[in-house]
């Protein structure tokens, strides 16, 4: 209790009240990036996982290289690469000058997408082989087998890990602020740069993120329960 009182004495949360409109704008952008990023990462995950179990060795090799490279390198560095290195590509660099928001979201999509590929690949491998055989025996082609039989089951198996990855992505949206995007964290930093006082805003923003993460976690647990097959 004593440290809390000490803290409260040194801090002025009126700052937060004044900053609220700006923070709200930033939060809206955070949500936008999070949703776009999650959808994009899921698409990358499904496509990549399908490629990694493809009969084509070339597809498998390409997908594996992509997965291992983008999930073992920091998303922050990937964002910097997309924002600052791409435009310097000889010849085509001119067309690759991405708006900061795009570069940042793309970085998240690639990194969390690569993680999704690994998660879904494990999920697909966990689906009993008999399911693929039954689907094939009915005459379904590879894509339809994946679409109607294999991926729906793999997704259920992978749901907890996928949920964790969505939470990771949500927390990683803060990285976009590093290249000047005004998400919740970016706006907070913007205000701090002007008023030169930071603790209140960081605490507030931190708590907002923690609450969102808790809500996401609960949502996923509910989803797992709803989709359970047994």
């Amino acid at each position: 209790m004593f440290p809390a009182v000490l803290l409260a004495a040194a801090l002025d949360f009126g700052i937060v009240r004044d900053a609220a409109p700006q923070l709200a704008r930033g939060f809206a952008l955070t949500l936008e990036i999070a949703v776009t990023g999650t959808i994009g990462a899921l698409a990358v995950g499904v496509a990549g996982a399908a490629a990694r179990i493809s009969p084509s060795a070339a597809a498998r090799a390409a997908a594996t290289a992509f997965t291992e490279f983008f999930r073992n390198t920091p998303p922050l560095v990937q964002i910097y690469f997309l924002a600052f290195a791409l435009p310097k590509l000889p010849g085509v660099g001119h067309y690759l000058i991405l708006p900061a928001v795009v570069a940042a979201t793309l970085g998240l999509v690639l990194h969390q997408g690569a993680i999704n590929i690994e998660i879904l690949r494990a999920g697909l491998l966990a689906v009993p082989e008999g399911q693929r055989e039954a689907a094939a025996a009915l005459g379904l082609g590879r894509i339809d087998q994946l679409r109607y039989v294999l991926v729906p089951q793999a997704a259920r198996i992978s749901l907890p890990a996928l949920g964790n990855n969505v939470i990771s992505l949500f927390k990683n949206t803060t990285l976009v602020a590093s290249i000047g995007v005004l998400d919740l964290f970016g706006e907070a930093n913007d205000i701090i740069a002007q008023i030169l006082v930071s603790a209140e805003l960081f605490i507030t923003v931190g708590v907002i993120y923690v609450i969102c993460v808790a809500l996401l976690g609960t949502a996923f647990r509910l989803l797992e329960r709803r989709l359970a097959l047994a």
Partner: peptide, 13 residues
């Protein structure tokens, strides 16, 4: 060709 498997292999979802 219709096939019936030992493990049924019905689609659980």
């Amino acid at each position: 060709v219709g096939m019936v498997f030992q493990q049924f292999n019905l689609f659980p979802h």
